[in-house]
Design a protein around this nucleic acid. Structure first.
Lengths: 349, 349
DNA sequence: CTGAAAGCGCTAACAC
DNA sequence: GTGTTAGCGCTTTCAG
């Protein structure tokens, strides 16, 4: 059995109360007593039981992370940021995956409540407003990437409009004048927001993005591969394409190669997600919008810690994106935020 | 504040002990009393504090998951299996990412010990024997995917040799007779094991894999793209290639297309990892060895639960792979285990 | 300066 | 059947 504070007290020849104070650097006592206590604890390999401590303190220094639909490509970066933010307060993360199942979700919420977590982070793969995770929960909740449909909740997500703006600005700076958009299903808020952003930015350059040059489809390579060719057949003047993710961009790059168009000379390409593994391997490498998910995770963690401390900030906050420049659209970036590297993370897969 | 068992007892008009027994279905008491207690608990939204309970029970029903070098592409599937296995015992997962840093690792181990986790799972991106996580830890440890250098520890990993056998058998069944291997750095045990397996399987078919047809390099598309062409220049008779992962396979497919070789008619291809997002999008789609990581996770979880119960199984156990058949090598699979789908998981990214 | 005592939320013997 | 008591490991008044 692991030694308890009583063992320390006994061996050090003091009372339990003194041992406690000694170990926690509280109260006042003769330095030699404290030293003796600490030394004894070290000798016995004493490790205070945090669960016991949380009984009195009321804090468990544990937060839940509930993902609503599995761990995806976005999870690692987000998780890294969350962990780093929380580690500042030596909080640990309890993981739960609801797998699109409301019953599972409920079950996990209960389990987390029974463990008296200090807070909860809810994440999911879409930025669309989603039903909140429960009402009157006994801990603060922050939604990460996904946003709660209830404006009284706290959500932190990506500014997809900004991402859309960055993408087309990069194309425009490269000199593109007839820009098209190949993207995912319009049922995604992210997809719609990016279109909105793209149009706004183009308008500032006196350019436009007519409906005829926007193609919605699945978020897949296949989509990019087939539709890029149709698009250029219909409208051979297109000289730049904003792709809704890097898979589409890759398909588009291959499709352009197949019809003998050079990238970026004839048609420039900008993707989204900056999934380096894919974007950097495309021929040529694809410039891409980065959602700064590590930073998102940090902000989420910090927001949750603040909520736990009583400072709640209801509403949705949207963090800006960056642009990762690569050969498919090699223009200077102007004042736009530039992505450089995954800094403190082990990159990708 | 959340109601405590005392609140329940008071409201239900019984003692705390009776309330406890009533709620846990223990002891014997008048059914109506039990009913009253349970009903009161429901009314007050009582949620027993598991931390308090674990003080007496000695069990926290929490296990740590320590990843040594970040969350990769393999993590989600593994994690899913682990979660499912542990949920059978209503265990929760505490997440830690050591990020290749021994100090961080030590720190996390301490934190987990302080939380009195019932057990620990250690995972990492390589199957190479790695230094064990600590000595004389106060809880059982199971290594997942990564294996401990100490044979007294319990490790569960992938049978890469079997994977190598499956890959070349699939090629052989398609009719390939001059098989080559494009793979990652030989510093990886996984890389060497797969070569061993491939050679063993080929020998059974009276075929071989001479050193001249094995190329080591980085695990990247670029590697496949450039080396497949050199390889076929040197040895134009090659009719099948076993690729060390799906990125290499993809590069190889593109490289073959670039020199006008048809896949699979001229050269068949089998990859490794069965990373569907990549493998299924390659033109043509790439057949690939699947490591059954979800199942690995389950076995790891079950093994850990057994260890917690006192049944330890030291040593390394290696689980077999499956083969996912796709257009790049469309042969019947014989008796080999076939991959069908990610079953209970939300697939990929 | 140090220690006795009470209590955090819950469980488990053992009385009544 | 139900309640009293003690105790899990630790913190925290408050006396001494």
């Amino acid at each position: 059995m692991a030694p308890t504070i009583r063992d320390i007290a006994r061996v050090a020849g003091v009372s339990v109360a003194t041992a406690s104070k000694g170990l926690n650097g509280k109260g006042r006592m003769r330095p030699e007593t404290r030293e003796r206590i600490v030394q004894t604890a070290r000798d016995l390999g004493f490790r205070p039981n945090r669960n016991a401590r949380s009984l009195t303190s009321g804090r468990t220094y544990t937060v839940g992370l509930l993902t609503r639909n599995g761990y995806g490509r976005f999870t690692p970066a987000l998780l890294g940021g969350v962990e780093d933010a929380l580690s500042a307060d030596t909080c640990s993360l309890l993981l739960c995956d609801a797998r699109r199942d409301a019953v599972r979700e409920r079950h996990y919420i209960d389990a987390l409540a029974a463990r008296r977590v200090d807070g909860l982070i809810v994440t999911g793969r879409e930025t669309d407003p989603a039903p909140r995770v429960g009402r009157d929960l006994p801990f603060p909740v922050v939604y990460a990437y996904t946003v709660s449909a209830d404006p009284a909740d706290t959500s932190v997500t990506v500014d997809d409009e900004h991402g859309g703006r960055l993408a087309v600005r990069q194309l425009a700076r490269y000199g593109c004048r007839r820009i098209a958009h190949l993207t995912g299903p319009p049922s995604y808020a992210a997809v719609r927001d990016r279109v909105t952003g793209a149009r706004a930015a183009l308008a500032e350059e006196s350019l436009d993005l007519p409906d005829s040059r926007v193609v919605y489809g699945p978020f897949s390579e296949e989509m990019g591969f087939t539709h890029v060719r149709r698009l250029l057949e219909r409208d051979p003047e297109i000289d730049g394409i904003f792709c809704g993710n890097d898979q589409i961009a890759r398909g588009a790059a291959d499709g352009l190669a197949a019809i003998g168009r050079r990238v970026p000379d004839d048609v420039a390409l900008v993707g989204f997600d900056n999934w380096t593994l894919l974007a950097a391997s495309t021929r040529p490498a694809v410039a891409s919008v980065d959602m700064n998910l590590y930073r998102l995770g940090r902000v989420v963690g910090e927001t949750l810690l603040a909520s736990i401390d009583g400072t709640v900030t209801p509403g949705i906050s949207r963090l800006p994106c960056s642009i990762a420049v690569r050969a498919s659209c090699p223009a200077p970036t102007g004042d736009d935020p530039v992505w450089t590297s995954d800094a403190p993370l082990v990159p990708d897969a």
